[in-house]
């Protein structure tokens, strides 16, 4: 499948899940959809049949709240062949919780509490380095969760231990729970901060498939000891005009009219 199409399918699926099950976080699912599409359609050496294979790539998805996008991506890649996602998502007794769950095939780590995945990714990357294994470790974090001190502990650690097999993608959609990132806890200049922490930094358009693709194959593989941060400049709610850059779509679940209008836009786009 064409990766752009893959991304749109993620958005359509996420929309449907949020609408049917009245869940939140559609804005963050839409902002990260293109990144996930590139990772799952083009980059990651992951498939349902090799999900337990030691040589697979690892993705530690820290945006556990933006679960719908990840469930959709995994579903598109055939990880849930016997599952009716619309039925299972948030259903009593199901592991399709509205923050991602490692009890599901293809999900390396449960997340939902912020600031956990990067450190675990560091441990996985360290094991790969010590044992000279070829797998790559990716993590996708949100911008708001960089408020968490644990992330900065891990950012120091990754550079100190020369984890050049680690790539951290920041979904920089610039809106967090209570307002804009700039208002709540300013991150800028983020790229300079990470460079000062001895990371490689790529600043890209997080909705450009070629730019994401190039960044994921970028300096993280140079073997020069530096971990790689990809700051993906994204738009919260990307793809649906009335959801874009709106804080309310961090929480709001689409009503019937919203759903129809959003669906029409995504199908046209």
């Amino acid at each position: 499948m064409d990766t752009r199409q893959f991304a749109q399918r993620i958005r359509l699926r996420a929309l449907e899940l949020c609408y049917r099950k009245r869940t939140s976080h559609i804005g963050g699912a839409f902002s990260v959809a293109d990144v996930l599409a590139v990772l799952y359609n083009d980059v990651l050496n992951i498939a349902p049949e090799t999900v337990d294979c030691p040589s697979r790539d690892r993705l530690f998805y820290s945006k556990g709240h933006a679960c719908t996008a990840l469930y959709a991506a995994l579903d598109l890649r055939g990880f849930f062949p016997d599952v009716d996602l619309l039925q299972e998502f948030t259903a009593n007794g199901s592991y399709f919780t509205s923050h991602i769950n490692h009890k599901l095939r293809g999900i390396e780590l449960s997340t939902g509490s912020l600031g956990h995945a990067l450190g675990v990714a560091c441990g996985s990357a360290l094991a790969g380095k010590r044992r000279r294994e070829a797998y790559s470790v990716y993590t996708v974090v949100s911008d708001g969760e960089l408020d968490e001190g644990s992330n900065w502990e891990a950012i120091l650690f990754a550079a100190h231990h020369r984890l050049d097999n680690l790539t951290m993608v920041v979904d920089f959609n610039k809106i967090q729970s209570f307002g804009s990132v700039a208002e709540v806890m300013a991150l800028e200049p983020l790229a300079e901060k990470l460079r000062a922490f001895n990371w490689h930094v790529s600043e890209i358009d997080g909705h450009s498939i070629p730019e994401i693709d190039a960044a994921m194959r970028g300096p993280g593989r140079l073997g020069d000891g530096k971990p790689h941060c990809v700051i993906a400049d994204t738009i919260k709610g990307k793809g649906v005009s009335f959801m874009e850059n709106q804080l309310s779509w961090h929480y709001q679940s689409p009503g019937e009219d919203d759903y129809a209008a959003a669906r029409a836009e995504l199908e046209a786009g």
């Binding site: 675990v120 502990e153 120091l156």
Partner: peptide
């Protein structure tokens, strides 16, 4: 490994290493 004075990360790194066997 000395993980430095950073116990949250020490625990997370430990979990990452444990996942790898």
């Amino acid at each position: 490994l000395n993980a430095g004075i950073a116990e949250q990360n020490m625990t997370q790194v430990a979990v990452g290493l444990a996942r790898e066997g």
